[in-house]
Design a protein around this nucleic acid. Sequence first.
DNA 1: GAGGCGTGAGAGAGCGCTCTCTGCGACAGG
DNA 2: CCTGTCGCAGAGAGCGCTCTCTCACGCCTC
Lengths: 326, 326
Amino acid sequence: MKRVTLEEVARVAGVSRATASRVVNGLGTVDEALRHAVQRAISSTGYLPNIAARSLVTRRADAIGLVLPDEHRMLGDPHLASVVSGVTRVVRPLGIHLVLMMTGPGTREQAVSDLRCGRLDGVVLVHTDPADPVPGQLIAAGLPVVLAGRPWQPMPITYVDVDQAAGGALAGERLLALGCRRIATITGPQDMPTGRDRVRGFLDVVPDAVVVHGDFTRESGIASTEELLARCPDVDGVFAGSDLIATGAIAVLHRHGRTVPGDVAVVGFDDSSAALTCEPELTTVRQPIADMAQEMARQLLRQIANPATPVTSVVFAPSLVVRASG
Amino acid sequence: MKRVTLEEVARVAGVSRATASRVVNGLGTVDEALRHAVQRAISSTGYLPNIAARSLVTRRADAIGLVLPDEHRMLGDPHLASVVSGVTRVVRPLGIHLVLMMTGPGTREQAVSDLRCGRLDGVVLVHTDPADPVPGQLIAAGLPVVLAGRPWQPMPITYVDVDQAAGGALAGERLLALGCRRIATITGPQDMPTGRDRVRGFLDVVPDAVVVHGDFTRESGIASTEELLARCPDVDGVFAGSDLIATGAIAVLHRHGRTVPGDVAVVGFDDSSAALTCEPELTTVRQPIADMAQEMARQLLRQIANPATPVTSVVFAPSLVVRASG
DNA sequence: GAGGCGTGAGAGAGCGCTCTCTGCGACAGG
DNA sequence: CCTGTCGCAGAGAGCGCTCTCTCACGCCTC
């Protein structure tokens, strides 16, 4: 198992290392006969270019990072897999590696180091909160970065998101179309843009809705629905800020003898796997996650290729998936 | 944004590059005063070692791959996240990168190239099937590799798995303990060791159980349960080969007017997120995925550190999580 | 005081690759 | 016939780092 170097390929082919390199990278002009000689030498020796050596001179790592928070509610997030798969689809054919970085508190800065020491060419950042210093550092250092989701505060950074407010509106319109008269919403956390925007869009359409604040979890859906039924027993339509909330809500509604969608229509958000395992299956707002992920990858590659690329934001339209629950 | 090299650190500290390198890597003996001078120089210049240059000479990439099949049923697999997070936990504190490789058909060999050209130090392989040439190639080349799950055919390769048969037995014992008289199982695919072993362990405990073959999906759970109810309407206990099967089974049981666990007790396998969003919540067999993932990482690191490490297999014990469904 | 030895720093040789620069031969234009 | 140009291959200078090898210096022993 000896290592084959370009030097050796050149020797076998009877050319110089420079010419062998030209053939490997397909640039420059090389005589057809020599090109073939080199190609034969490559396959006969089983040559593979040493990435470290190449990277040392090209100053490209041919690797990008995907930075995720290692939070429990993130684990098993069905979106995660779609993001990974979407980014992979763009990046892999180019021979670029995707480095997964699940960061606990404190280890997040690692991404910045990896970028600065040339180990990574750029990063996709998921779910940054206002306290996260990483985006700021990256911007300051002029390093390629794309955010998944609109930043919490306005900042000059490229991001890709879905129009959360439009999604909320979609849900509201659905409940109205179903003829619901007493409509409520259980929201996501109001300190997150995602949580806020969904309600905002929803309230634009159903201004007199009852609002109960929660977070995106199933537990929160359970607690908030108990509260909702106490405050407003005649509710006949619920917009849940997430599918998980919706599953919790439906469990509580059943426990209280309400049928879904008979007595109460329920619309979720995310079109996660929970939407399908739920009884009844969830009507929900879908985000085109895979498309968004591909767009993130493309935006990042653009920045890497040309660091002077202006900051952009791409916003995708959500869609309503009608199933049994509402 | 100029790059700081070790050369520059050495110049600022007034020492040679060699000494600066010793301080950075913490090896060799360096005078205390010089050590401090170098450390000051490092922080004042903001020095970060160039990984490519280091990797070129150390012949270590400080990166490992996690190879997953890019199949739809794999997307959103709740285990995936636990595997990633477990591996990350071991590997990250050592500064080792985790490269996610979702491979479509044909692109799987990429992992072998990445390993051979020094881009990756080792790989964790998930869900290889008998037709997969990669494990064989890796073994032949003597490259560090760990399999997640027992290989389909016996081969000299290190793997980490859970005792699937013991898990099946756990489920069988539970149904017996509940007093079920007419017990059935809906299996996973019988061409996968995972699918086979679970039934085998189950049948050791409940030899007269009715067996319906399916795969691990919810759809399969739905179809198989319809079949089961037709063949055996008095069934009062079901062991589902996966949680997804179980959710499908429960949906069908409800549709047919059976209560769970009143009329029919249901036990799943995996303790996935579906087990919690299900109504009623699923009694299920848990695999200690995060622990297993950590073990995989450790095994892999051992092989990387010492390629002569003998092939090992580590088998974890499953446990029963009792909830509402059975 | 000479020789042996241990400690710690510097010199410098690569690691394998890319890429510029040089050089050489062929051909066109003056 | 000489010069300019162009096409294409080779020489070689790094990229930034690690690590061996050499060497200087101070201490101990005889």
